[in-house]
Simulated scan of single mutants.
Amino acid sequence: MKFAFKDFLFDSKELKLYKDDRKLNLKQKPAQILELFLTAPQTIHSKEDILEKVWPDRKVTDQVVFQNIGHLRALFGDDAIKTFSRKGYQWQIPCTAFEGTTEAQTSKQSLPQSTNPAGGVLDDKPSENEATVTNNALKKPESVSKLPMFGLVGILVLLAVGVYFTLS
């Protein structure tokens, strides 16, 4: 399954993330958490549920969930994942889900289904805005320099997460 949101495209089968048709380096564990969120965006995922699905049969601390959620928030914005006190986390960005290849999506051989955090499929046909988001996510970038602009805090968070995973 592939998911388009904002100007991102996430392939849940390959656990690969693209922005403006450019592959981003996303580590395996944050990618697995993103897959969990996007496949069930209406669900509030408890810390225990995330630990069980992303780190099965492995003893890790709750801190790894917090760090990986922080990494995803640094990539997609603080409002991408909502924290429910003592309950868990929920994906907040509306996304379009579709099967098949990006070529099938571009040629409209398969219609995307749009989902939202409130639950379920919004519509069988994409609206003009949804189609634009999907097409923009699949379009080749027009300029070579498309580095994400993070603030100093975002860069420091990404650096800290990178060091953590390198040392783990």
Results as ranks from 00 to 15, higher is better:
M1F: 13
K6C: 12
F8L: 12
L9E: 10
L15A: 08
L17S: 10
K19W: 10
K29T: 12
P30Y: 03
L36W: 04
F37K: 08
F37I: 13
L38G: 13
A40Y: 05
P41A: 08
Q42D: 07
T43M: 08
H45S: 05
S46Q: 01
L51F: 05
L51R: 09
K53S: 14
P56L: 08
D57M: 12
K59H: 11
D62I: 11
D62A: 15
D62P: 13
Q63H: 14
Q63G: 06
F66Y: 07
N68V: 05
I69V: 06
G70Q: 04
H71Y: 03
A74G: 02
A74V: 01
G77T: 00
G77D: 03
D78T: 10
F84Y: 07
F84R: 02
S85T: 13
R86K: 15
K87L: 15
K87I: 12
Y89V: 06
W91H: 04
W91I: 13
W91D: 15
Q92C: 07
A97H: 09
F98S: 07
T101F: 06
T106K: 14
L111Y: 08
P112D: 00
S114A: 06
S114W: 03
T115S: 10
G120H: 03
G120F: 04
V121S: 03
L122F: 07
K125N: 15
E128Y: 08
N129S: 15
E130A: 07
A131M: 02
T134P: 02
N136I: 14
N136Q: 14
A137D: 04
L138E: 05
K139L: 15
K140M: 02
V144G: 11
V144R: 13
S145M: 06
S145F: 15
G151D: 02
V153R: 05
G154D: 00
A160I: 03
A160Q: 01
A160C: 11
V163A: 09
V163G: 09
F165M: 04
F165E: 15
F165Q: 11
T166Q: 10
L167C: 01
S168C: 02
